[in-house]
Amino acid sequence: MSSTEEYLEESKTYPGHKVRRPGSQVSRWFAPWKRGLGTWGFVLNRVAGLGLVLYLFLHLAVLSLLTRGQEGWDAFITLAKSPLFLLLDVVLLAGILGHGLNGLRVALIGTGLLVRWHRPLFIAVAVIAVLGLVAGALLFFSA
């Protein structure tokens, strides 16, 4: 069930009658359950997009460590080589691959070029993303 900020208002169609109006339902941007592959792609792009925006700010915060000199930066580099941090790198890679490849898919169907192929394209995007993610994870942890 969707969570909505419902409110009552006077009906324009039925004067004198109060109707229950649905409010903005942002929660539906993150609810792919029981929905088609298209919605999974829609949700993927939103989740990954928000994650990448968050990463951008984290990245800027990390870069600001440079202002503390070599000592502060070296401490961060030590942290960055820890397994937990490498796992976060894998999550970042998942976001980049998911958002980037799915973005290409949306561009191809959104301009009317491969509309009928939107489901196979989503599966292709998922397969390529998973392969890229596995390769990237192996690279991160073996380097």
Partner: peptide
């Protein structure tokens, strides 16, 4: 404004 979720067609 359409974001290609294709739920309408589904």
């Amino acid at each position: 404004r359409c974001h290609a979720a294709f739920e309408c067609s589904e």
